[in-house]
Simulated assay, not measured.
Amino acid sequence: MGMSTLTDRQADEKLEAAPDVPWQTVVWDDPVNLMSYVVRVFRQYFGFSQELATKRMLQVHHDGHAVVAEGAREQMELHAQAMHDYGLWATVRKAPQ
């Protein structure tokens, strides 16, 4: 058994031992969608206020990405799929500790 396999298994066990580690849905910048459309998607799907939706859109625009949701992995994957359905680029990641 190689050392990396052991390390991977330990990492998996650590994750399972800490199921409360939150996950995030991250929306990434793309050259296609208008800023106004991204704001509309965030308002419609997440129920963000105009102010919050605009703030997140500007993060995407200026920083290249923004965290739009945090919680259980399954829910974050549903959010990412919904963003794909709207034509946005989104991924799911473990929240930084």
Rank of each mutant, 00 (worst) to 15 (best):
R40E: 11
V32E: 10
A53C: 07
W28M: 03
L34T: 12
Q59K: 03
M1H: 11
D63M: 01
K94H: 06
R93C: 09
A11S: 07
A82E: 08
R56S: 07
E51P: 08
K14C: 09
D29R: 02
Q81V: 07
Y45I: 10
A80Y: 00
E77W: 06
A90H: 04
A72P: 08
L78K: 12
E70N: 05
G47N: 00
Q44T: 15
R40Q: 15
G47M: 06
T91I: 03
V39S: 00
V39D: 01
V32R: 08
Q59T: 02
W28Y: 05
V60S: 01
Y45Q: 10
M3G: 09
M1W: 07
D30C: 02
M1F: 10
Q24H: 11
V27G: 05
M57N: 08
V27F: 02
T91M: 02
P31D: 14
V39T: 03
R56K: 15
S4G: 01
M76P: 05
Q44P: 01
S4A: 14
V27D: 03
Q75S: 12
R9G: 10
D63S: 02
G71C: 10
M57F: 11
Q44W: 05
R9E: 15
H62P: 00
Q10T: 04
L88K: 04
N33V: 14
W28K: 04
V41M: 07
L58P: 00
D20Y: 13
D85A: 14
Q44H: 15
M1Q: 11
R56W: 06
G71A: 07
Q50P: 06
T7R: 11
H62M: 05
A17C: 05
K55W: 05
H62A: 04
R43D: 13
N33D: 09
F42K: 02
D8T: 12
L52M: 12
V39N: 01
V38P: 04
S4C: 09
G2C: 13
L6V: 09
S4V: 14
E77P: 10
K55G: 05
V68I: 14
E77H: 11
A53S: 13
F46N: 01
H61K: 04
G64S: 03
E13V: 12
S36A: 14
S49I: 13
E16M: 04
D85M: 11
A80T: 03
Q81K: 13
S49Q: 03
T54M: 10
E70P: 03
G71F: 08
A90T: 02
G64H: 08
A53Y: 11
Q81P: 09
A11V: 08
F42L: 13
W89Y: 06
K94R: 12
F48M: 13
V38H: 07
G87H: 11
R43H: 13
S49T: 15
R9Q: 13
N33E: 07
G71Y: 09
L58H: 03
K55S: 12
A11E: 12
G64F: 07
Q24F: 07
Y86K: 12
A66M: 00
Q44N: 14
P22A: 09
H65W: 04
W23V: 05
F46S: 03
A66S: 04
L88P: 02
P96H: 07
W89L: 10
A18I: 03
S4L: 13
H79W: 02
A66D: 00
L58V: 02
G2H: 12
V26E: 00
M3V: 09
Q97P: 12
E70D: 06
H61T: 06
R40W: 10
G71P: 09
N33S: 15
